[in-house]
Amino acid sequence: MPNYVIVRNRDEKPMEYYRQKTKTFVGSLQSASKWNSKKMAQPAYDKLIKNGEKNLEIVDSDEIKITIQTDKWKDYAKRIAHADNKTFYQEVEKVTSFLIASPLIVEEIRKEISQEDSVVLQDILHTVELGDYNKDEGLELLGDLRSSRQKRRNYKDKQEVMNMLLGGDENTGSQHAMDALDKIKEVTSPRSYQYRNPKLKQKYSKLLQSKQIKTIEKLIKRV
């Protein structure tokens, strides 16, 4: 399978890819010309260099895909890490909600797979084995069998994704997510402090009380 592409400005943004058909550089890896090996791409590369092009490389497109994906997640990480508190914790809550529900999601997927394997499939197979049906009814049975197996495959794919995500232990992920959600509630609620030193309490506690009142007022205004 052709896998090598000619890239311009690989270490810069935006990266560009050579399209031999139009003799231009395009922004889409999918639209780029591809060769089976570096050797096969070399003549086109040499011609471009001869015509004055610079910053070119012949690269395995799989490497490019990894780079694109890495850049995508780096951009996401920076955006979330530097987001305001509301945006940051909203994003975390989305993740925690999914993880908390993960045991129920996995169980529901298991039920659907079991339904197709132990109920629907058995009904269809026994109808095929014991039934008296004509050609049209046979085709309808085949259609129902195909539909059932496709539905089962869909849930099996979901099951595989969940297993990869949770490492086979959805309960641990759920518990960690609950802990994280509790922490979010803690850090986003008005904070208080109990002084240990009586003299400092007498001297400064009114400053903390004043700040707490302002924080509560802000929360009320949001509501």
Rank of each mutant, 00 (worst) to 15 (best):
196 R>K: 11
221 K>A: 04
6 I>N: 05
151 K>C: 01
24 T>F: 08
12 E>V: 11
158 K>N: 05
116 E>M: 13
80 I>G: 10
63 E>Q: 08
30 Q>M: 11
72 K>I: 06
74 K>W: 15
178 M>P: 05
76 Y>E: 15
144 D>E: 12
165 L>G: 01
109 I>A: 01
124 I>F: 01
177 A>W: 03
123 D>K: 03
194 Q>W: 08
121 L>T: 07
160 E>T: 00
70 T>I: 08
68 I>H: 10
145 L>N: 01
43 P>N: 05
37 S>N: 12
189 S>P: 10
89 Y>M: 08
128 V>R: 12
215 T>A: 07
8 R>C: 10
199 K>R: 15
98 F>N: 02
36 N>G: 14
40 M>C: 06
31 S>Q: 14
211 K>V: 08
11 D>V: 09
93 E>P: 09
152 R>V: 00
170 E>D: 10
138 G>D: 01
184 I>C: 14
127 T>F: 09
60 D>E: 09
111 K>E: 04
143 G>F: 04
62 D>W: 07
179 D>E: 12
171 N>W: 05
189 S>W: 06
163 N>V: 05
172 T>E: 03
125 L>Y: 11
213 I>V: 13
176 H>M: 15
177 A>T: 06
61 S>R: 10
62 D>R: 12
52 G>M: 00
157 D>Q: 01
159 Q>W: 02
98 F>W: 04
219 L>Y: 04
62 D>H: 09
164 M>H: 10
94 K>I: 02
80 I>Q: 07
46 D>N: 03
163 N>Y: 06
165 L>M: 07
97 S>C: 12
58 I>R: 03
207 L>F: 14
71 D>N: 13
195 Y>H: 13
180 A>L: 14
39 K>Q: 15
202 Q>I: 07
68 I>G: 08
60 D>H: 10
222 R>C: 08
72 K>M: 14
10 R>F: 13
18 Y>A: 08
174 S>A: 02
53 E>Q: 04
62 D>K: 08
64 I>T: 06
79 R>F: 09
65 K>Y: 08
60 D>I: 03
213 I>M: 14
87 T>G: 06
107 E>S: 02
57 E>T: 07
25 F>W: 10
178 M>I: 09
202 Q>G: 11
180 A>K: 13
73 W>L: 15
101 A>L: 06
15 M>E: 11
69 Q>N: 13
133 Y>V: 10
69 Q>S: 13
181 L>V: 12
55 N>M: 00
57 E>W: 08
206 K>M: 11
124 I>E: 01
153 R>T: 02
112 E>G: 04
126 H>G: 04
90 Q>R: 11
166 L>I: 05
157 D>G: 00
21 K>H: 12
164 M>A: 15
1 M>E: 05
203 K>A: 15
101 A>P: 03
127 T>P: 10
99 L>H: 01
84 D>W: 09
37 S>K: 11
109 I>Y: 01
44 A>H: 09
184 I>Y: 09
26 V>T: 15
190 P>E: 06
75 D>R: 15
49 I>R: 11
222 R>W: 13
52 G>F: 00
157 D>N: 02
101 A>N: 13
62 D>C: 07
179 D>V: 12
183 K>F: 15
